[in-house]
């Protein structure tokens, strides 16, 4: 696991001693990235995938991501579903109740842009990023739990790269494939 290896690099063994030394920010950034508790802001069918992600088949507890019913316990808000103009103030209020530092995942096309409700709809907010600072977008209608898992892992890399202490941001080796890594023509792209 690249994450464990990074911690090993941050640790400094003292020769002959039974202790290890590290900096507070290195251990804090490491632990912060591995306990991204979710605020499950599920409002539509994406919430079913979000719920499935928490249960035994996908088991996001192994990533340290567990859903919490109280926004004051959580680190990342997963907006899973259509947000209407009536719901938006409630979502914003829950977001403001979350303690800093906090992140946001827009799960599904509705949360990204309004999705199928973009045109000819009077009641739907066209993307949750109109009022929340979204860190990771997941496309899909709805996305599979694997896509949410990819988003959690990408967010973890972002969290671990930005340090708790100012000016100590670090570069980490990504374990996730980039879009440019995909073989050309494999995804149904017209050549």
């Amino acid at each position: 696991m690249a994450g464990i290896d990074d911690v090993a690099k941050a640790l400094e063994r003292v020769p002959g001693g039974g202790i290890i030394l590290t900096s507070i920010d290195a251990i804090a950034d490491w632990s912060r990235g591995y306990s991204l508790w979710m605020m499950p802001m599920g409002t539509a069918c994406c919430a079913m995938e979000l719920i499935a992600a928490s249960f035994s088949k996908f088991d996001f507890d192994r990533h340290g991501s567990i859903p919490r019913p109280d926004p004051r316990h959580t680190d990342v808000m997963v907006v899973a579903g259509t947000i209407t103009h009536k719901m938006a103030p409630s979502v914003k209020r829950l977001w403001e109740q979350m303690p800093d530092p906090k992140w946001c995942i827009a799960m599904g096309n509705c949360a990204i842009s309004g999705g199928i409700f973009y045109y000819d709809t009077y009641s739907v907010v066209r993307g949750v990023d109109e009022f929340l600072p979204v860190d990771v977008y997941i496309a899909g209608c709805p996305p599979r739990p694997e896509a949410l898992q990819d988003a959690i892992l990408r967010l973890r890399e972002k969290v671990r790269a930005e340090s708790v202490s100012p000016g100590r941001a670090r570069t980490i080796e990504s374990i996730l494939p980039l879009p440019s890594d995909a073989p050309r023509g494999s995804g149904g792209d017209a050549e």
Partner: peptide, 8 residues
């Protein structure tokens, strides 16, 4: 009529 609605 709602000016905020984007027509397809």
């Amino acid at each position: 009529e709602d000016p905020g609605v984007i027509r397809r």
